[in-house]
Simulated assay, not measured.
Amino acid sequence: MNSIKESNIGNLLNQLEFDDSEELVNELNNEIFENELYIILTDNGELMVLISQENEGDFFVPVFSDYKSLCAGMDSIGDDSLDADIATGRDIMSIYFDDCDFSGLIVNPSDDHYVFECGDLEAIN
């Protein structure tokens, strides 16, 4: 598997703990949308999704900003048949955007657990 290009996502997630300003959130959302992220594929090659516990039928796509977070995510699932690939946030959002059950992306769900919701696309430049 190829590795992703280094981005500023991890640093922005760390900053978000101390500063949740709209400017920082918009910068983070831009980074998620434009940069490569790791994704998990099921054993039949489909993108893994996480079903919302709050709204039945709604789902999120888990994405990972670095290899360490990907490994933590795959370890927490505990399924050796899973594989990983690379996609940008833009690519993933374009696949599912017309699906009314798609709620957005969850970045580093095992660690930082930042949610990039479909509604956040309005703030993308």
Results as ranks from 00 to 15, higher is better:
residue 67 Y to T: 12
residue 107 V to S: 07
residue 81 S to N: 14
residue 104 G to C: 05
residue 53 Q to P: 12
residue 56 E to T: 11
residue 68 K to L: 11
residue 78 G to L: 01
residue 94 S to H: 13
residue 94 S to V: 03
residue 60 F to R: 06
residue 57 G to D: 10
residue 100 C to Y: 14
residue 72 A to F: 04
residue 102 F to Y: 08
residue 53 Q to F: 10
residue 102 F to E: 01
residue 100 C to K: 14
residue 70 L to F: 13
residue 106 I to V: 15
residue 84 A to V: 05
residue 99 D to W: 04
residue 76 S to R: 11
residue 100 C to N: 14
residue 91 D to A: 03
residue 52 S to W: 04
residue 61 V to E: 08
residue 108 N to Q: 00
residue 58 D to R: 11
residue 103 S to N: 12
residue 88 T to V: 02
residue 53 Q to M: 13
residue 87 A to P: 00
residue 53 Q to V: 09
residue 72 A to H: 11
residue 107 V to E: 05
residue 99 D to I: 06
residue 101 D to H: 15
residue 102 F to H: 02
residue 65 S to N: 10
residue 97 F to E: 15
residue 74 M to Y: 05
residue 71 C to H: 11
residue 68 K to G: 12
residue 100 C to A: 14
residue 97 F to C: 06
residue 69 S to G: 07
residue 74 M to R: 06
residue 92 I to S: 01
residue 67 Y to E: 15
residue 108 N to K: 02
residue 82 L to T: 10
residue 60 F to W: 12
residue 65 S to K: 04
residue 106 I to W: 08
residue 84 A to C: 11
residue 73 G to N: 07
residue 94 S to R: 14
residue 73 G to R: 01
residue 100 C to R: 15
residue 65 S to H: 14
residue 84 A to G: 10
residue 108 N to F: 09
residue 88 T to F: 03
residue 61 V to C: 06
residue 52 S to I: 04
residue 94 S to D: 14
residue 61 V to P: 12
residue 89 G to W: 15
residue 79 D to K: 03
residue 65 S to A: 07
residue 102 F to A: 10
residue 55 N to H: 12
residue 88 T to N: 00
residue 104 G to D: 10
residue 92 I to D: 05
residue 67 Y to C: 05
residue 72 A to V: 04
residue 88 T to G: 09
residue 95 I to V: 10
residue 96 Y to A: 08
residue 81 S to F: 06
residue 63 V to Y: 00
residue 89 G to S: 00
residue 89 G to V: 04
residue 58 D to M: 10
residue 102 F to V: 03
residue 106 I to T: 10
residue 101 D to R: 13
residue 57 G to H: 13
residue 80 D to K: 07
residue 83 D to R: 12
residue 99 D to M: 00
residue 54 E to V: 01
residue 63 V to W: 03
residue 92 I to R: 00
residue 107 V to H: 01
residue 70 L to Y: 12
residue 81 S to W: 02
residue 91 D to T: 06
residue 55 N to D: 11
residue 56 E to G: 11
residue 88 T to P: 02
residue 58 D to F: 13
residue 97 F to H: 12
residue 93 M to I: 15
residue 86 I to T: 11
residue 87 A to K: 07
residue 57 G to Q: 10
